[in-house]
Design a protein around this nucleic acid. Sequence first.
DNA 1: ATTATCTAACTAACTGGTTAATTAACAATG
DNA 2: CATTGTTAATTAACCAGTTAGTTAGATAAT
Lengths: 251, 251
Amino acid sequence: MSRSESRDDVRRRREEIRDLRRQMRQSRHELRRMGSRGQPEESRAAILRAVAIEFSEQGIAGARTDAIARAAKVNKALLYYYFQDKETLYGAVLDEAFGRMKLAIFQVLDSSLPSSEKIVAYVGAYFDFIASNPIYPRLMQREMMRARAGDSVHIERLVKSYFEPIYHRVSELLHKGIREGVFRKVDPAHFVPSMIATIVFYFSSAPVMRRLFHFDPLTPERIAERRAAVLDFISAALFKPCSSANPGVRQ
Amino acid sequence: MSRSESRDDVRRRREEIRDLRRQMRQSRHELRRMGSRGQPEESRAAILRAVAIEFSEQGIAGARTDAIARAAKVNKALLYYYFQDKETLYGAVLDEAFGRMKLAIFQVLDSSLPSSEKIVAYVGAYFDFIASNPIYPRLMQREMMRARAGDSVHIERLVKSYFEPIYHRVSELLHKGIREGVFRKVDPAHFVPSMIATIVFYFSSAPVMRRLFHFDPLTPERIAERRAAVLDFISAALFKPCSSANPGVRQ
DNA sequence: ATTATCTAACTAACTGGTTAATTAACAATG
DNA sequence: CATTGTTAATTAACCAGTTAGTTAGATAAT
């Protein structure tokens, strides 16, 4: 008897709690996105945004689907309604980020500037993209590390779709400049990685810089300073010395 | 009666199993590390070695203590016998790796070479250290990412103990070379990161390179080629053009 | 009524860390 | 020189907490 009573007690309490929760939710969200048919596009986009941040900061292994759902203000099951699994989710974010990067870069590479100016524009554009999309280099780093461990199902696609096309165009550009006599005789297969390194490293090592220099390396002023330094560094390494074709930026 | 018999049975079987295990272990390890008081130093070292590999490949969140124990051929509880927790384990590995790096670098910085040769020697030494200790840049990358997410308890110590001393010495070296008129007027706060970037990036992006160029970028020949390219790149960016003091390496 | 959209609650598997027991070496003791 | 006790090294088995992914519905628009 007392047993069945306590069971009833539990059920009653549970229902009370459910009602209370419903009220809370209603008052908190003010009726927004209750039940179904809220704004699906918005939800999907919110998920991708949250995933990008979570993955770039914590990595795949460290990323928590609950945290993602909370950040996107969406139930966790919705992640699996829109995407197959964690891995697919990650892939979607990568394609989104790298796609935008490719677009920004090709805008410059497709322009009709002289070689020396175009390479400077390319470096500048890449720098600017990273400066205003800081999660891009983070995702790239993460993915490269996963690829080394042999755990990346995305790397092949990413290289074919994004890196290879860009690399080929920049490589051509370098060869052209060398033929024209404005660039030193560098090997694109090494020079391109060196350029990217110089551009990217400052951002990925910002936490170290902050502690080494005792100031925030990511303020707009510092970033502008770095931009100039990067262009100077690369220009000095690429342009023929004692030549008149040096539009390099100095401070 | 049958009960006591079965109990005896169990005891006998247990002893048999124990003997068998002992034999197995003996034959496998040839008497090494049996039972207790084997070689604690060896066990500790084996753990650290395994941790270094596991952490550099999987990161802290992805690293599995079970996998580490298996790789070190040691029981998991032994990890916690020697180290407080996962985090402490990671810290020990970081200090070991960064300590050796600092040693190798200071050996060059303490030498009495002229500025231009010393900076080349520094870059070469750093490159060589990374080339033969590939887990170092991986650990560094991991830790920088954790630091950005605010999850690193080690970064402060690492910067103070390893990066700061090295940075200051290289910075002095650059200033000296500039005063002497052999180096261009570069800002060490930007030039040093750019150098490190050029040195490190090739290794951390090897998985992309492999797919981009369709060959292994980490063979001794390719690494030697890269070394030359890095020295050329940095030399060209640092040494005054049209000056006689360019010992830069070309292919 | 159907369908697209959304949720709370659940589960099976896994993971960092703990515990109590076991083993070997060694020193002291009888 | 055997026995005993002590201590450091090592382990199997376990546990409490977490996590990716699932399920059984609920809600609203059509």
